[in-house]
Computed example of a mutant assay.
Amino acid sequence: MTVSPSRFTALWFARSVTEVSAPGIIGVALFLAVGWHSSWPDIGGLLHGAVAAVLSVAVPYAVLIWGVRTGRWSDRHVSRREDRVLPFLITLASVVSGMVFLLWADAYRELTSVAASMLGGLAVTLVVSLAWKVSLHAASAAGAATATVFVFGFSPLVAGVLVALVGWSRVRLGDHTAGQVAVGAVLGVVVASATFHALG
């Protein structure tokens, strides 16, 4: 079957967006950006963000890669819903360790808010995933976009467009339905908004 150039380009672009917007990549970028912003020109916040990123994101991602290579899980995005519980629990424990570090280090409130919203988002999507395949990419992207609105004053419209692009890529690749993407995005926005409002 021949794939038209336009279809090939769309699939390539969708795959690129999906890879760039992987929850792990977004998590690391958010911790570093918020850490840098919270204490600039001092680098203390950036260092706190870097340690939190390693504990909360890099460690569970390394475990995920090991699981994929050993055949425990199908792929890095954990596409099969039934495979998600253990990676979620490992990630939750890792995020808790990152949050404990931030609290111990008396890190800036913006950083602890990021960790708390990540923890809440993971917990909610885990519960939903027990019965239904919600989009983790959409939830992560929406949560991070909401955080950038609170921390950097980023335009909600631009943030929404970027989240929509991530959602489109997941649907275009056939990994999720529009409903799964929409629910993930709503969960990400609601949890992050509630967390940042609560922590001020």
Rank of each mutant, 00 (worst) to 15 (best):
A107S: 14
A107L: 08
E110P: 07
L111P: 08
L111V: 07
V114K: 03
V114H: 06
V114S: 07
V114P: 03
A115Y: 01
A115M: 04
A116H: 12
A116T: 15
A116V: 13
S117H: 11
S117Y: 15
M118R: 12
M118C: 13
L119D: 11
L119Q: 03
G120M: 10
G121K: 11
G121C: 11
L122S: 13
L122C: 08
L122P: 11
A123G: 15
V124L: 11
T125I: 15
L126S: 10
V127G: 05
V128M: 07
V128K: 01
V128F: 10
L130N: 04
W132F: 10
W132Q: 06
S135W: 03
L136Q: 07
L136A: 14
L136N: 08
L136R: 06
L136S: 07
H137I: 05
H137Y: 02
H137K: 03
A138R: 07
A138L: 08
A138K: 05
A139V: 06
A139M: 13
A139F: 12
A139P: 13
A141F: 00
A141P: 01
A141L: 01
A142V: 06
A142W: 04
A142L: 05
A145S: 11
A145Q: 02
T146M: 11
T146E: 03
T146N: 05
A147C: 06
A147S: 15
A147V: 13
V149P: 05
V149T: 14
F152A: 14
G153C: 12
F154E: 05
F154S: 12
S155L: 04
S155D: 14
L157A: 15
L157M: 13
A159R: 07
A159T: 04
G160P: 04
V161P: 00
L162A: 13
V163K: 10
V163I: 08
V163C: 09
L165A: 15
L165D: 04
V166H: 05
V166P: 05
V166W: 06
V166M: 07
G167H: 02
W168A: 00
R170L: 00
R170I: 00
V171Q: 06
V171Y: 02
V171M: 08
R172V: 02
R172E: 15
L173A: 05
L173E: 13
G174I: 11
G174V: 09
H176A: 09
H176C: 09
H176Y: 09
T177M: 09
A178M: 12
V183M: 10
V183C: 08
V183N: 09
V183P: 09
V183G: 10
V183E: 05
A185V: 02
A185I: 01
V186T: 15
L187T: 11
L187E: 10
V189H: 08
V189C: 09
V189E: 07
V189Y: 10
V190C: 04
V190L: 13
